[in-house]
């Protein structure tokens, strides 16, 4: 019974107060084992409540305070999709442009006559 009192008193200040003898006591005393589980559950929930999530934009706000630090670019998924679409359309237009250019040169060559051009030089 004396161990029960000491064990439960120490549960609230776990890091300081747990001794090997007291741990052994919990293994043989169901009531104290129950109290230990309750204390662990309580600590888990309270810890998450006292350490709330930092707001999304706070990190950027804080890093902006540091002189000389390059700001990390925060891009949205929409921006990334638009960028991919832009590059895809640019590539397609480039291919079409090159094809039109080659075709134009070919038409010009057949109209003027490529050999004639060479002979005039």
């Amino acid at each position: 019974m004396e161990h029960c009192k000491e064990y439960r008193t120490n549960l609230a200040l776990r890091p300081d107060g747990d001794t090997a003898e007291l741990s052994q006591h919990a293994a043989t005393c169901p009531e104290c084992a129950k109290a230990a589980k309750r204390a662990a559950a309580f600590d888990t929930v309270v810890q998450s409540a006292v350490m709330p999530m930092v707001p999304d934009d706070l990190t950027a706000r804080l890093l902006a305070l540091v002189p000389g630090l390059a700001q990390p670019m925060v891009r949205s998924k929409r921006w990334l999709r638009q960028r991919r679409a832009f590059f895809a359309i640019s590539a397609l237009l480039s291919v079409i442009g090159v094809a039109v250019l080659i075709y134009g040169l070919y038409i010009l060559g057949s109209y003027v006559g490529v050999s004639e051009i060479w002979h005039t030089q």
């Binding site: 009192k5 549960l11 609230a12 109290a35 589980k37 309750r38 559950a41 309580f42 929930v45």
Partner: peptide, 19 residues
Amino acid sequence: IDPLQSLADDDRWADPAAV
């Protein structure tokens, strides 16, 4: 003695993994 004594009858605190 046990600061959490008042929660002893509340079963929700019985399982650290579930909370």
